[in-house]
């Protein structure tokens, strides 16, 4: 049970990553792989600030803002310097590796006794459940820390999702969606596609860095390697989410990305429990995304292929 709770919590945290990836890959159709660097950036900035006794909320917001800066850089490289989108992301991601090492001044920052959002949520959990270690949740006995963490993260992610949903219904947010849908049209309606793309990538990487900031606090450390393969992870979540909701409505897609992330994480936890070699995780994730990407076209081909007649 504890295992599933933990997996769900991490799935929820990484739902922010999925939302960021959804924004760049799906709304803008922009293959932004800055994400691998910006999730670590969020983690390293927040962890380092926590070590310097910043308030957890401020440190987390700082992680988010750092991610926005990374996204802005990718956007500027692409729009102002006309560098291929994929390459812009690679450049920023590579640069971030060194930057993250500089921020942390080592490859790993443990959060041992620092006050973080995680410790605060734990405190609130003890207060709320009136329990020291274990609590009864729908008939299961679970650790207070695990239960509180899950609820806290759920609340936070729901809030972020709601804000994102509301944003997409504002004038600026609809213009952003339209930019991905039909750039020619939105330009003819007076919107600078470059500006909106930069803004969108900033928002996307901000969300991804926020995921990193929360993950570092939840697991109790930031590590320079933690971002590797995260784009593909987020993409897998988005694809599962789309399959789950099967709709173009923005609210459902946001919910789908969150559910996709949680489901994916649960599947992984179960697979690992059954003896999957952790080293194969990224290979399997990549293979899954590959299949999901080609499946629709393949299905269409199979359907339209002429039936083999009698020889």
């Amino acid at each position: 049970m504890t295992l599933l709770l933990g997996a769900t919590t991490i799935g929820l945290i990484l739902a922010l990553l999925a939302l960021g990836v959804y924004l760049s890959f799906r709304i803008f159709n922009f293959p932004d792989i800055t994400a691998d660097g910006s999730i670590t950036l969020g983690a390293s900035v927040t962890a380092t600030l926590l070590v310097h006794h910043w308030s957890p909320w401020l440190a987390t917001v700082a992680g988010f803002l750092a991610g926005m800066m990374a996204g802005t850089t990718t956007g500027v490289l692409h729009t102002k310097f006309k560098i291929n989108g994929l390459l812009s992301g690679i450049l920023v991601m590579t640069a971030l590796y060194s930057i993250n090492l500089h921020i942390m001044s080592k490859s790993n920052v443990p959060l041992l006794n620092e006050i973080s959002l995680a410790t605060q949520i734990e405190h609130m959990g003890h207060a709320a459940f009136h329990a020291e270690t274990d609590v009864n949740l729908f008939g299961w006995t679970v650790g207070v820390r695990d239960a509180a963490m899950l609820l806290g993260v759920l609340l936070l992610v729901a809030m972020v999702g709601l804000v994102l949903y509301l944003f997409f219904r504002t004038n600026l947010g609809t213009a952003m969606r339209a930019t991905g849908d039909n750039p020619q049209m939105i330009r003819a309606l007076g919107v600078s596609v470059d500006f909106i793309l930069i803004l969108g990538l900033a928002l996307s990487n901000g969300l991804i860095a926020l995921a990193g900031a929360l993950l570092a606090q939840y697991q109790g450390f930031a590590d320079v390697q933690m971002g590797i393969g995260m784009v593909v992870w987020g993409l897998a979540s988005v694809i599962i989410g789309e399959a789950l909701v099967g709709s173009h409505r923005i609210g459902l897609l946001i919910t789908g990305a969150v559910m996709g992330s949680v489901l994916f994480r649960l599947l992984v936890a179960i697979a690992l429990r059954w003896g999957l070699n952790p080293n194969d995780l990224k290979l399997i994730t990549a293979a899954f995304v590959f299949v999901a990407l080609i499946a629709p076209a393949l299905l269409r081909k199979l359907k339209s292929a002429p039936k083999p007649g009698p020889a």
């Binding site: 213009a175 339209a178 849908d181 039909n182 309606l189 173009h248």
Partner: peptide, 22 residues
Amino acid sequence: APNMSIAENLALAARRGRPRGL
């Protein structure tokens, strides 16, 4: 914009060339 609703498309046009805020 094909994936957006009729109303949203027109709302976008109703602000042609004007600032788009929150």
